[in-house]
Amino acid sequence: MAEPKIDLKNLKAGGFIKERGKDLFTVRLRVPGGRMSVDRLSKIAAVAQKYGKGYVHLSVRQSIELININFADFDAVVAELGEEQQKVASCGARVRVPTACGGCEYNPNGLVDTQKSALEVDQKLFGTATGHHKFKVGFAGCPFDCPKSATNDVGFQGAVWPKLDADGCISCGLCAKSCTEGALSMGADNKPVFDAAKCIYCGDCIKVCPTSAWSAEKKGYTVRIGGKWGRRPLIGTLFATFVPEERVVDFIACVLTWYQEKAEGAGRVRLGDIIIREGWQSLLERLRSEFPQYVVQETIAPHVIQNQVPLPGQQA
């Protein structure tokens, strides 16, 4: 066989995606959490200008994709992107680049540092072969959930559990007014009364409190598992609460191991469908053995969105 014109190692993770035209590929870049330095952005622009056809595509999972790249230029593209430590992403049956919202450093709504989590997962789990199908992870900093965490195989949503310092409370009633879930009301003593069963851990009470009488007693991620979009969407369901940021990678690794085992022989099937087939109890028990203090008592199977089907043609 002739000496290959390009370094085939670059193709291993699969971020080079065949286009319609002869010799042309899309190069999907690895941008965990959608954040990059302006220097890196400038480098990407320069590479796109030099090797592409004058435009890039911002993917729905926060990547920049270089369009119309000739496969003969792969090595040069990789080398020049490498000058700003920009790497190529993946496709196929692997752990994908995690998505994340802006996080909590500058966004006043963010409860958890989602950017840090996305970087850590990217460093430790990116590209891991699942053996079955793609595996997506996403991080939302709060229950507003801009990243739609429950549509990921494993979706994380920032959460806080509030506690009140009654002496610091000035009885303004803003927390009760702001609580969209009805978990707070003003009591006879003109101090807030907390109904824990209704709380979704959004922290609006903490954010709105003018005197910081409300504060976070604990903080972490609400975890929903088994979501996906595509032809047959599933909404991931609740498996754990207040998973600490430093346990995120281990938690995902545990889910991944279960998926790799249980999907054996199933072919190209996503995690959510395996949970439906195996029963949620199996995954919940596995997670409970490693994360007993965070796993919920029980859950439900990933949720099929019934109103997506049947389409008119199927009724004929």
Partner: peptide, 13 residues
Amino acid sequence: DGEPVKNVPRSLK
């Protein structure tokens, strides 16, 4: 009432 009273005190704090 509404968004102003939820947002402005918090931002000034």
